[in-house]
């Protein structure tokens, strides 16, 4: 029986690759060599640390867009988890999706779309069962030292959220067409995240490391000079 923090996960599901190496999330912690990592990503992520464990990729965002029309992943991720475990039947999985979404008060057609999404996710995932159960991560109890002034929760490194690459949130990518752009600066002004800067001639430059893909810029551009593409890369 585990509750809350899972110390030795049989499998880990990650909704976006950028979370894999986030210092504050650490989803890979405690994974055994034979445990399984599922990453929602249209393509493989080649990172050294992932070589020891088995990684499965699936483009759940793509499927969610196909079935629901939005990048809402809960039913899809849930279905993948159920299938990976090898413990939960398709029927129970879809029943749970239906029941929980009905509790949220969603309309019948939206629930049905999510059920279809969950079904495809379930059927397209292989069952791996519970692995790594004997893996016991090595933990050691240490003494915490008194750090005096350094142990006060004040943040001195101001403006450091730039370290968090929120670009991975992006499902659609805004792309400026230099031929149509008149350098009016409207996209720059309305970007909620300060992700658009202006070059020396006044043309917008999008910071894709951090652009969350809200597409306010696309909507507000008076020249329709910002087109949209489904995001495939992540930064």
């Amino acid at each position: 029986m585990e509750r809350g923090h899972i110390f030795n996960p049989s499998y880990v599901l990650v909704t976006t690759p950028s979370l894999l190496f986030d210092m504050t999330v650490k989803p890979l912690e405690g994974m055994a060599e034979d445990s399984v990592l599922f990453v929602n990503s249209p393509k493989e992520v080649s990172i050294e640390q992932l070589k020891k464990i088995r990684v499965i990729y699936g483009d759940l965002t793509g499927l969610a867009l196909k079935y629901v029309g939005k990048d809402i992943l809960s039913a899809a991720m849930g279905a993948v988890a159920c299938k990976l475990s090898g413990l939960i039947s398709l029927q129970s999985t879809l029943g749970a999706v239906e029941e929980e979404l009905a509790e949220l008060g969603l309309e019948t057609d939206i629930i049905e779309k999510n059920v279809q999404l969950a079904k495809e996710c379930y059927l397209s995932t292989e069952s791996v069962g519970l692995r790594g159960l004997n893996h016991k991560p090595l933990h050691k109890v240490v003494e915490v030292r008194y750090l005096g002034e350094k142990g006060i929760p004040d943040l001195l490194s101001v403006g450091n959220t730039a370290l968090r690459k929120t670009g991975s949130w992006r499902v659609f990518k805004p792309i400026v067409d230099k031929n149509l752009c008149t350098a009016c600066s409207i996209c720059y002004i309305y970007c909620p995240e300060a992700c658009i800067s202006l070059d020396e001639r006044g043309y917008p430059v999008i910071n894709y490391d951090h652009c969350k893909g809200c597409l306010v810029c696309t909507t507000e551009c008076p020249r329709n000079a910002i087109r949209v593409e489904r995001e495939t890369a992540w930064s």
Binding site: T161, R164, A194, D209, K212
Partner: peptide, 20 residues
């Protein structure tokens, strides 16, 4: 700019836009 990117606020947040 006094606000740098990378906040955990929702995409398209009106409050963040106002603050900026």
């Amino acid at each position: 700019e006094f606000l740098v990117p990378g906040t955990p606020l929702c995409a398209g947040c009106g409050a963040l836009q106002v603050m900026r």
